[in-house]
Structure formats: structure tokens, C-alpha cells
Nucleic acid binder design. Structure first.
Lengths: 227, 227, 227, 227
DNA sequence: TATGAATGAGGCTTCATTCAT
DNA sequence: AATGAATGAAGCCTCATTCAT
């Protein structure tokens, strides 16, 4: 009996270790990708950074691309979580909360956001890991879906422009996407005041598509005080 | 005499042919890049598509990266031209013309716009062709500069929010950038009505950052009729 | 316990195999270089001759040039060993022993000696592997140094001409160098009696720079009988 | 008549120009080879330095290797000339004059001497221009031949060791060869006093192989005064 | 006749993935 | 189960030589 249970314990223990190592691989990869150019990161370097052998990486991931898609999915799931919370708050009356949550989570760590965009480019070009890429798209589509109800209501309420509901979400996505690239485009890098700029853009994001709504900090703070 | 002139003619003729071939290389590269994944396009394939030998490519470009930066610069110069025209029209009273020109030229061939973004990423990572990358940045900065006067005037006139003038340009850049990615992100690709969506976003771009201005087509035409 | 030791054994075994393969690469390279023209030997051919994959070569050597410098260093270390022994015998009274050892070790396998000279030329032109080239030079300088004491004593004893001590070593080096080229210069190749010629030159080498010393085999044997 | 002669003049003029250009190509090549690494000198660079088109080079030389062998032959012919003069003086009683001339002409421009050695290595490996390489060898063999009479006489006169006559010439060749490499071997480069060293070696070269002859400047001057 | 653009074989090197221990 | 040595396809670039003008 005890033997059995201890053996089960050992198995569970092993699984935990296995998962922990998997996370270490992901973390190592992200670290390296953020430090240096994507093209220069090899599986070997990831293994070294993770403190394991190269072969072991392939016990966890079938191909290098599986590491990439995993990083992207992890990140997208985080975004989804934030957005869901925002939608919750929006349902409670704070009409801009969803957009705000979305922007904040994407601009919280813009470097990482940008990284996942770039990884996704590489991945899609490779034609690999199609299944997981589909999963990623499903995730995004479900986000869109989750917003549709809210957006429709806001359109009906005259808050948002009367266009197909997903236009609003996609415009948000586009602005956020561009804002992130703005942060890292070498051309603009020397401009200070990134924080103020990102706030400015976030405000645009929160109010864009609004009908009869002023684009100003006042309008934003008004909303806040109302809620 | 005639001999001289005919010899000079021949030389000129040769130069023209040489430049034409250079353009053929560029065109071949762009074609291939648009058809397939950037990573899969080799110098050899470009040469074959251009109908010349691999070695000939290197008579025109010192390295593969020089082809990339050339594509990018050619494109950015086009944008600059459009923007300059828009600024001209804006000076003549059409306050939204600059932003509109900018968006239209970038969204006219979004696939190409996206391509140049991706090429730029690769290039910057490579650390190569630094000089030409600087030239690219100069071009963008000069665009920003050209807009500063116009933007400042619009701020003083109470049309635009009173933030540092370049915020407006950068926000435009970001939205355009994101809109382009929106067009080609596989997640959203199956959604029809791209044209309407792009119009919607363009309108946002034209009016975003405006002070006390409605976000609607009416508001847009109002402005036009006022000016 | 046994487990541990056997695992350690296995690791040691692996290392031995690894080093053995490294030697096989070197041997294959030397074989090929001696068989054919240096310029015609590619990394690929070396790998084939060594019976391994091209990529494997790069597990052992960072670049092709690292193979070359390794061959040269291995050879120079051999020379150094012989010379050191000769210096030992010279200290024991046989005044010509050092020079003799030096000549003999360099003329023992003249083809290999010549090969290393040529490899060194290529290497220095390439400007690569600077560190290891420095090591090579250090090795030679240390040889020179080791001889300085002996030479100085022989000068004081009136055996050698009173010129800066290193003149004697360098003259030896030059003659040995030239003798090796003599062996392989196509112009002289058809002349028989290479052995006798090399003996003649070795004798010159052993006695050159001597003061009041006959250049003849007798003089050489006299010295020998004295010691 | 006049027409004919002027046409002949023109032809002669053209030939002169043609030969002058050929020399310019040779000179340009030598300049470049001496300035930089042999491997890095391309036909294109030679043409540019010579101030002509790349294609024109091929009007003068069938292949790149023909340029190399031409440089070598030109140099070897110079050596031959000096040696012949030396032999003349030796016949007039100055027994060391031949060796001295030989050493002096080879050490006069050691960099060029070394260059021709290296070019010869490349050439022979290439298996190209066999005919001209044979010519080069003939030249050297004829030098040896020219010396045979002199050397034989010196052996009979008891001045030189009684070994096959060509041993003496070849020993000279070897020492000169080695001396030249000594000048340019990076290991020894920092040692000053190159002039004194070369004089020391030249003296060895002049007296080596002598029978019952002291190795010293005195011995040398003795011989001179005796003759 | 002089030119130089065009050519393409062939070199070195990288790295994702496999597999024997 | 973990390892890391081995692999080889594939990419970029060089340069001697040709040939149409």
C-alpha cells in the first residue's frame, strides 16, 4: 500500500519536475529572444540557458517551432484573461473598460508583445505546427466573440459607431499592434516621453469609434468619475 | 563626331540596360517575397526569377541585404512623395489631407507595406547595411519634420489635441502599421469587407487626436465644407 | 558505486573516442595536403577522408584555418622536443648536438616540414587564428631562447664566431628551411643522391658559424670522438 | 612609299604600346602582390591598378597563371644575369665571386624573391602553364651547368670539398632560399640588425663547402688577397 | 581593339534534428 | 530518461574567364 502510494508520489513528483523543466525551456527561449536577434537563437543556446542538454529539449517539444508557438499561445492566453476581466467590468457599467484592459495588457510588456508578433510571422511562414496556429486563431476569434455582445450593446446604446461590431475590436487590435511596433522601431527610439505617448494612444484606443464623443482626457476622466 | 556621339550613345544605352536589370532584380525579389516566405527566398531563386545568373546579382548589390534595404527605401520614398503632396493640400485648407494621403498610400498595397516592415525587421537584426538603414530613418524623420509645422498650426487652431506635435504623427504611423498587419494576419483573413474596415480605420486615423470633434463621416465632411 | 564508476568510465571512453576522431581529422588533412595541392583540399574532402560528416569537422574545429594551425603547432612542438633533447646532449659536451638534432628533425620528413611552412604562409595571409599563430611564434622564440645560453658559451669558448648569439640559430633555421625547399623544388627533383646532399648540408649546418673549424667530415668525426 | 613607311611606323608604334601595357600589367600585379596577400589579388584589381579593362588583360595573358609565371621568369632571368657576371669574375680569379653575386642578387630585394617563391608554389600546384614552368627549370638548370665548370675547377684546386659539383650550388640555393624566408617570417621580424644578419649568412654562403678554410671575414679577405 | 557585364562552379559555414549510449 | 556528438542540406558569396558590343 504504502509502496503504491509512494510510487504514485514519485510519479507525480516526476511529472512536476518535467513540467518545471518545460517552463524553464520556455523561459530560457524568451529570455534569449528578448536579448538578441531571433535568427541568432539556436536550439543549442536555449538548452544551455535552460541548463539542460540539447536532446532533452526534444523530449518536450517535437520541433523548434513548437517552442515558438508555445510562447505565443502562453502570451495570447494572458491577453485573453485580461480582456475577459475587462469585459466583466464593462458589463458592470464601465463602457471603456474592455478596450482599456486590452490595451494595457498588450502595452504592459511591449517588448514581449512584439516578440510574439515576430515569432508568429516566422511560424506562419514555415507552414509548421498548423494545429497550434489554429488554436491561436481560435483564441483570438473567441476574444472577438466575447466582445461582440458588449460591442453590439454599445452600438445600440449609441456609444459606438454603427458598423459591424468586430470593426471596433479589430481597430483596437490594429492600433495596439502599431503602438507596440512604435515602441521598438529604431526610427522613433530616441524620442523620449514614451509613457506619455502610449497614454495618448491608449486614450485614442479607448475612445476611437465612439459616436459623438470628445477625444480628450476630460472625456476619459468624466467617464471614470461616472463609473 | 558622329563616331563620338554614337559611342556616347552606346554607353548611355548600356547604362540604361544595366539599371533596367537592376530593377528586374528588385522586382523579382519583391515578387518572390510576396509569393512565399521571406526565409525561403534565396539569392539563387531571385536570380532565376530575374532571368540572370547568380553572380550577376552581385554586380548590382554587394550582399543580399542590400537588395532588402533597397526594396524598403524605394517603398519609403514613395510614401514620402504621397505624404508631401498631402501636406501641400493640407496647407491649402484641407486639414485632414496629410493624414489621409499617408493612410491611403500605406494601405494602397498593404501586402507590400507589410513586406517592407518584415524586411526591415530582418535587416535591423542582421546589423548589416547600417548606413542605408540610417538613410531610411532619416527619411522618416524628415517626414515627421515636414508635418510638424502643419500639426502645430492645427493644435494652435484648436483642431488637434494639445500634445507634442509628433504624437499625432506617431499615432497615425502606429494605426497604419497595425492596419496593415490586420490585413494579413491569418486570424482575421477570412473576414470579408476588408474595404469597409479599412475605410473605418482610415477615418479613425484622420480624426484621431482631434479635439472636440465627432467621430463620424459627417464630422469629416463638415470639416471639409468648413475649410 | 559500480554504477558511478562505470558511468565515469563511459564518459572517459567517450572523450577518448572524441579525441581519437580529432586526430583522425588532422591525419586525414595532412594526408590530403601531402597528396595534392593545398588549394584543392576542401573541408568536405577532409571529412570524407576521415570517414565522418562535414558538420562533424566543425564540432572539433571552429574553422578550416583552425585545422591548419593545429597541424603546424603539432609539428613545431615535435621540433621543439627534439631540439630540447639536442640541447641536453650539447650541455653534456657534444657541442654540435643541438644543431644536429634540429636539422635531423626538420629533415626527417621534409615533405611535412615543407607542408607546415606553406600552411603557415596561407594562415598568416588570412589574418585568422591570430592567437594560435602567436602561440606558434612563442614556441619558436622559446627555442631560440633555450639555445642562447648554449650558443653564448660556445662563443666564449671560441668555438663559434662572435656575433649576436641568435645569428647562429637563425642561420641554422634558414639553411634547414632552404634545404627542405630544395627537396621539393621541382627543378632539382630529378637529381638523385638526395640523402648524400642532405648530409652534406647538415654538415654545413652543424659547422657553419664555427671559428677556425674545418668544414669536413673529418672535423665532424673529430669532434665526436672528443666528446 | 611614305604611306607604307608611316603605316609600318604605326604598326611598330602599336607594338611598342602593346608591350608597354603588358609591362604595366606585370608591374601592377607585382605591386599588388607585394602590398597585400596573394590570395586577395584578383585579375580585376590588377586591371584597375594597370589602368585598363579586365578583358584587356586577357589579350596579353591567356590566364591569370600566365601572369604569375611571367613574373617568376622575369625575376629568374635577372638572377641568371647577375650569376653569369659573377661567374665571369670568378673565372678571372675571384673564386667566391659567383656565390657572392648569387646571394647578393637574391637578397637585394628579398620581398620580391619571396614573392616569386610563393607564386611558384601556387603555380606548380595548379598544374597549369607547364611549358613555362619547364622553361623556368631549364633556366635554373642552365645556371647550375654554368657553375659546374667553375665548381669542378675549385674542387680540383682543393678549394671546395670533393662532393658532386652541384652540391655546392644547391647548398647555396638552399641557404639563400632560407635567408629570404628568414627576412619575412613573422616570428623573427622584430629582431633588428637584419643587415648584419644577412651579411653573416652571406659570408657563410660564400665559404660554406670550402675545404680547410676558416669561417671568418679574415679568411675571406685572405682568399681575396691571394687570388 | 578594348571593355566590363555576365556567368556559375564551388568554397565555407550553420543548425535543426536524430540516435546510440 | 538525458545527453550531445554526428549529420548533411542549404545558404551566401567569390572570382577566373567569356563574349557581345
Amino acid at each position: 500500500m504504502q509502496n503504491n502510494s509512494s510510487s504514485a508520489d514519485r510519479i507525480r513528483e516526476k511529472k512536476k519536475l518535467f513540467l518545471a523543466r518545460e517552463q524553464r525551456i520556455i523561459d530560457a527561449a524568451v529570455e534569449l529572444f528578448l536579448e538578441s536577434s531571433i535568427d541568432r537563437i539556436t536550439v543549442s543556446k536555449i538548452a544551455i540557458r535552460a541548463g539542460i542538454g540539447k536532446g532533452t529539449v526534444y523530449k518536450h517539444f517535437l520541433t523548434k517551432n513548437e517552442i515558438l508557438i508555445r510562447i505565443i499561445l502562453d502570451y495570447e492566453r494572458n491577453i485573453t484573461k485580461s480582456l475577459t476581466e475587462g469585459i466583466g467590468r464593462a458589463g458592470a457599467g464601465d463602457s471603456g473598460a474592455a478596450a482599456k484592459s486590452y490595451f494595457q495588457s498588450r502595452l504592459e510588456n511591449p517588448k514581449l508583445d512584439r516578440l510574439t508578433q515576430q515569432l508568429e510571422d516566422r511560424l506562419i511562414e514555415s507552414g509548421d505546427v498548423i494545429e497550434q496556429v489554429k488554436e491561436l486563431h481560435q483564441l483570438r476569434l473567441s476574444n472577438e466573440d466575447a466582445l461582440k455582445g458588449l460591442t453590439s450593446k454599445l452600438i445600440e446604446g449609441g456609444v459606438l459607431e454603427d458598423v459591424p461590431p468586430h470593426f471596433h475590436y479589430l481597430a483596437c487590435w490594429a492600433l495596439a499592434q502599431g503602438a507596440v511596433e512604435l515602441c521598438f522601431n529604431k526610427t522613433w527610439n530616441n524620442k523620449m516621453d514614451n509613457v506619455a505617448l502610449m497614454e495618448f494612444i491608449t486614450n485614442i484606443g479607448v475612445t476611437m469609434g465612439n459616436k459623438g464623443q470628445y477625444h480628450s482626457d476630460e472625456s476619459l476622466s468624466n467617464k471614470k468619475s461616472k463609473s
